[in-house]
């Protein structure tokens, strides 16, 4: 029983990380219809910078902020290349972000090398209903939930947020009322970068990063987001948590093997069921 609770909470912690990656994907996709393949790279870059800053004696909090800021700036940069040119189709943009994700490898290796990095998070072990788990997982959950609430507030209660939602809802109408949809696309990428960065800095203490950790991050993030059709942040949160729990349960009771498979098969099943319900999805990537 206490095993189960431990797995559940750990799973929620891991899932919260997926949900943050997913939320960045969703933030970008809603506005630009681009699936941003470089989303995992934001997390890796942010985590690497945070590790360096902490190593240089910058205190916790400030170091993480630095990482998230780098994520946001990288997001802006990726957005500028991917959707900055008028007339770039979402399919083309996806391939561009794929290329930029690979470019990030080069940058990361030059600056930080190709060895895994990590840093200490919340120290110690927490006891929860008899279950023992790394206390840091609780921090991940404690940050993620308010971040999603904040996002909901931002998208519905602030004018820039409303403008982003407007672009997501009806691009043409957004142009009619004078919203610069390309600038909104860049804002979405910046936001996505910050969210990806946050995912990276939060999860690194429990899951070390390597330059190529981005693949696992993006796939799990996509799996979480695809549940809500890539457009619904709340469903992405639920999807991320579900995925995290499914993985830890599989790992816990399955002896460590096949946790990757669980998430991926879940994602494939969801997509195939969705496609069967709605007919082939019309977007074509090139």
């Amino acid at each position: 029983m206490s095993d189960l609770i431990g797995y559940l909470v750990t799973g929620l912690g891991i899932g919260a990380g997926f949900a943050l990656v997913a939320s960045g994907l969703v933030a970008i996709y809603r506005v630009t219809r681009v699936v941003n393949f470089a989303q995992g790279a934001f997390a890796v870059l942010a985590a690497m910078l945070t590790a360096s800053l902490l190593g240089a004696g910058v205190p916790h909090g400030l170091a993480e902020l630095g990482g998230v800021t780098l994520g946001a700036l990288t997001g802006l940069l990726v957005g500028a290349v991917a959707v900055g040119r008028p007339g770039t189709s979402p399919g083309t943009s996806l391939i561009v972000t794929l290329g930029l994700g690979v470019l990030a490898y080069a940058v990361e290796i030059v600056i930080w090398g190709d060895q895994p990095r990590s840093y200490p998070g919340v120290p110690g072990v927490a006891e929860l209903a008899g279950a023992r788990l790394q206390a840091h997982y609780l921090l991940i959950i404690a940050v993620t939930v308010p971040v999603f609430a904040l996002m909901a507030w931002f998208f519905t209660r602030t004018d820039p947020g409303r403008a982003l939602s407007a672009c997501a809802s009806n691009r043409y109408a957004a142009q009619v009322v004078g919203i610069d949809v390309r600038r909104m696309g860049l804002l979405a990428f910046t936001l996505g970068g910050a969210l990806g960065g946050l995912a990276g800095v939060l999860t690194t203490p429990v899951q070390q990063v390597t330059f190529d950790s981005d693949v696992a991050l993006i796939v799990n993030g996509f799996a979480a987001a695809v549940l809500g059709g890539l457009t619904r942040p709340v469903v992405a949160l639920a999807g991320g948590l579900l995925l995290g729990v499914a993985q830890t349960l599989a790992a816990g009771y399955g002896g460590g093997a096949y946790q990757v498979e669980v998430a991926l098969v879940l994602m494939l099943t969801v997509m195939i069921v969705q496609a069967a319900r709605t007919g082939p999805v019309a977007e074509t990537a090139r």
Binding site: T156, R162, S165, A166, A168, S169, N170, Y172, A173, A174
Partner: peptide, 14 residues
């Protein structure tokens, strides 16, 4: 050309 997912008030506001 409504912003279909948004409220009437948000449509006006935009």
């Amino acid at each position: 050309e409504m912003f279909g997912d948004l409220t009437v008030d948000d449509n006006l506001r935009l």
